[in-house]
Amino acid sequence: MAIRDIEKTFVFPRIPLNFELPENYPEVGKILNISIVPEITHFRFGRDELEIKGEYQIAVSYIKGQSDSGTDKLENREFCDNFFSILKIQSNGLFTDDEPESSLINSKTSPELYTVHFNRSFHTYLDLEVIPRPRFFRPGMVVERAHLERNGGRTLKGELVLGLVNVARRGFR
């Protein structure tokens, strides 16, 4: 069974995401990818509702932003009109280029990735009318849609839409 055939029983309302980076992490330049693992830890069928408890783990990989240092470099370059003034003599007598390597070399090789993990829990109740056959239902959580973008330097905002699927069916996995 292909993944696209998974039938979603219910799509939850979107969850707004607001994350703040931990202190020891650098500012976000570009978000490269996000990975989301939703898990249901407990569920309970009541008289007319289904209680679901769980958590989702979001990992965000990003490249460090370099806004402040970038403008400084540009100003410096405009200021010194003599090309050789940016060359420095090393102790062994060789010239070195004073220009930092980040602008030239880092673009060619793979950039340094930073990954932050966030854990959020959810606890929700679902009307049993939504579920067609509750006796044969075992809830599983999938991601319907997810988006995240940087909001300023150190915060991330976005949205997450979760969907409920039945994992009790045979041949589902």
Partner: peptide, 23 residues
């Protein structure tokens, strides 16, 4: 009811950039 955690579901959203604009 306890749910076994080995459903193995993961979702990834990868953002695509032109290679020169990563920096």
């Amino acid at each position: 009811m306890e749910v076994s955690k080995d459903l193995g579901y993961r979702f990834y959203n990868v953002f695509l950039y032109p290679p020169d604009s990563l920096s």
